[in-house]
Computed example of a mutant assay.
Amino acid sequence: MPEGDTVWLTARRMHSALAGHLLTRSDLRVPRLATTDLTGRAVLDVTPRGKHLLTRVEGGLTLHSHLRMDGAWHVYAAGERWRGGPGHQIRAVLGTAEHTAVGYRLPVLDLLRTVDEPTVVGHLGPDLLGPDWDFEEAVRRVCADPARPLGEALLDQRNLAGIGNVYKCELAFLARVTPWLPVGDLPPGVPERLIATAHRLLEANKDRFDRRTATTSRPDRRLYVYGRAQQPCYRCGTPIRWDGGDDVRDRVSYWCPGCQTGPAPRDGSRTGG
């Protein structure tokens, strides 16, 4: 699932392949951009901002994309077979003489003036992987609404940018509280430690797609709770629970009732799934 670390690595690979080169192919497969042609323009840079990607090209233009649940950009060498999915899922193709970046299942794809980038990313809070990361401001924003459940506060990109559902669940586990505990009920010092941990984990995972939060040498134990419904907790052995909608796209919360204290759903909570 794309989160801030995945977007950061995607941007780095796209930047390495495209930046400084002229586009020899431009194919934007969304209705409002169907007639747009960026061929002949140089790619200036590809910059991540939270979970947003900003591909800047000559002429003061930025191609803005967001991966959300299952979008992806793949980079291929010239002549290499594209393997990111069937052709009907392709939303964008940006090619140079040596590389081609192909965007699959992109739910958001816009072309805007570079000076107008704040209209799509200006609302974001401190970027966990940004050069201007501001720890104190992130703590202030997360704690600004004491009655708000922790999970909601962490997912709100206006508080801090880059956390998605995987990190929400893992961070709550590491803090030993449930995602439904109001932020104001966190013990003293926990908000600061939690946000410092979020920064550390995203930094540790930004250079790899196989995200890891569990501190164990076993390669099969990468995450503590996310996606592990009914499996035993690595700490206490209690079966991991999950709660959410029946649609796999719903933001499901995973937690260990043995390790994590705080409110949790009763009606509709599940041990399977």
Rank of each mutant, 00 (worst) to 15 (best):
D45Q: 09
Y234P: 04
R193F: 00
P131H: 05
T114Q: 01
L129W: 04
V108M: 05
V115Y: 00
C233F: 01
E98L: 14
W180Y: 14
L106I: 03
V7S: 09
E117K: 00
G103H: 09
L186T: 05
P149L: 03
A264S: 14
T216S: 15
R218E: 15
T6M: 05
L194H: 06
L155G: 08
L129Y: 03
L186Q: 02
L150M: 05
L174A: 12
V57N: 08
K168N: 10
Y104C: 04
A72G: 03
I90P: 02
R25W: 04
S253Q: 09
V190Q: 10
D116W: 01
H64K: 01
T261V: 13
T197L: 15
F173H: 11
D246L: 11
D210H: 14
A196M: 05
R218N: 14
R91Y: 01
T197G: 04
L44G: 02
E3K: 12
G50L: 01
R208H: 14
L124H: 07
R222L: 15
P265Q: 06
A11L: 08
Y226N: 09
Y254W: 15
P126M: 00
D243G: 09
P86Y: 04
T10E: 13
R81A: 15
W242A: 12
T216A: 15
A198E: 08
G79W: 09
R218G: 06
P239R: 13
N205S: 12
P182S: 06
V43R: 11
T216F: 06
R32K: 13
I195Y: 04
P265D: 05
A17N: 12
E192H: 12
A196F: 05
R49L: 01
P191E: 04
A172Q: 01
P187D: 05
E137R: 13
G245W: 04
Y234I: 10
M69H: 08
T215R: 14
P107N: 10
P131I: 02
D45V: 02
L63N: 01
R83M: 03
T178R: 08
G164Q: 10
V142C: 01
D210F: 14
A264H: 11
L202D: 07
L128D: 00
V108D: 05
P179E: 03
A11D: 07
V57W: 08
L124F: 03
R113M: 00
A42G: 07
T215L: 14
P232R: 12
R56L: 05
A153Y: 00
V190M: 12
A161H: 10
S26C: 15
L124G: 04
S253A: 15
A161Y: 11
Y254F: 15
G130H: 07
G40A: 11
W73I: 01
D132T: 12
H64W: 09
A214M: 13
A101Q: 08
L94A: 09
I90D: 02
F173W: 15
P131S: 05
R68Y: 05
P86L: 07
H99V: 07
W180A: 11
D243F: 15
T119Q: 12
D45G: 06
T271D: 11
F135Q: 13
G40V: 12
V102M: 02
L186H: 08
D116E: 12
N205Y: 09
R251M: 09
P126G: 00
T39N: 09
P219I: 13
V248C: 04
T47V: 14
E203C: 13
P118R: 06
P86Q: 10
R251S: 11
L202V: 07
R218S: 14
G125A: 06
A138F: 06
T215K: 11
C256S: 09
H88M: 04
K206M: 13
